[in-house]
């Protein structure tokens, strides 16, 4: 598992560098709509609390639902928790516009690089896919060729990043108003698909916990995308 936290470190370094580059290039000193330093600090604290709570709660819950004991973290759980905390904070502090673009490029890089760490960590990380006969199946050490689902997610995020960087230069207003919601929609949709080829125990019909969380994120993104033109005024 040493390899995983080395990739975690690499992912965080890359994430910070991309965030800094993006913010400098497009002169984003704060998330949109948050101009007071104190509001910005409290917003970040809310994000941190939501991220940590969601990540640990849903990661551990999934582990236990799958019959394994221990403590785990989850990226989807973290995103759900952070969005919930951020929206709650925004509601009570009167912020009515999208603030997520500020964090989006860094988050995409964090997932894209971090998932490579999950891939190299192999079986102990419990993020691998189910058995496959496809030629790119990977043997993680137990003699079974499995879907490298971590790399699927990494690739999906990388493609979205390329699309975002190309498109943002042409239409920054669209990305400022709706970009984060579009990212959530893409992230949750691809994650929903990959969950069908993961070995997690279903909790409802054929859907596991992360299917349900992904559906929540898709619903959130669609609602916010529908509402976002009103915010533009």
């Amino acid at each position: 598992m040493t390899i995983h936290f080395l990739f975690d470190l690499l992912a965080m370094t890359a994430s910070v560098m991309v965030s800094m580059w993006f913010r400098r290039r497009y002169q984003l000193s704060h998330p949109a709509g948050i101009t007071q330093p104190a509001k910005y600090h409290y917003y970040l604290i809310a994000l941190l609390l939501g991220l940590a709570a969601g990540s640990t709660l849903f990661g551990t819950l999934n582990l236990h639902l799958s019959g394994q004991h221990g403590l785990a973290k989850s990226m989807t759980g973290g995103i759900v928790g952070a969005i919930f905390a951020a929206e709650l904070y925004k509601y009570f502090s009167g912020i009515r516009q999208s603030t997520g673009l500020y964090f989006m490029p860094g988050l995409i890089v964090l997932i894209a690089v971090g998932r490579i760490g999950c891939f190299y960590a192999g079986l102990p990380d419990y993020t691998y896919g189910v058995k496959t006969a496809l030629p790119w199946g990977v043997d993680f050490g137990d003699g079974i060729y499995r879907h490298p689902v971590q790399l699927y997610e990494s690739l999906a995020m990388l493609l979205f990043l390329i699309f975002f960087l190309k498109s943002h230069a042409q239409n920054p207003t669209f990305w400022q108003q709706r970009g984060f919601y579009l990212f959530v929609l893409v992230y949750a949709t691809q994650r929903f698909c990959w969950e069908f080829i993961k070995p997690y125990t279903p909790v409802y019909s054929q859907l596991n916990l992360f299917h349900l969380l992904s559906l929540c994120l898709i619903a959130y993104a669609l609602i916010m995308l529908k509402r976002s033109p009103a915010h533009a005024a």
Binding site: M1, T2, H4, F5, L6, D8, L9, M12, L51, A52, S55, T56, G59, L63, H69, G70, L71, A72, K73, S74, M75, G117, C118, A121, P124, D125, Y126, T127
Partner: peptide, 14 residues
Amino acid sequence: LIAFGGCAVINDMG
């Protein structure tokens, strides 16, 4: 959160 690297923080309580 960063320091406990990996997705599975504690593999087995035992």
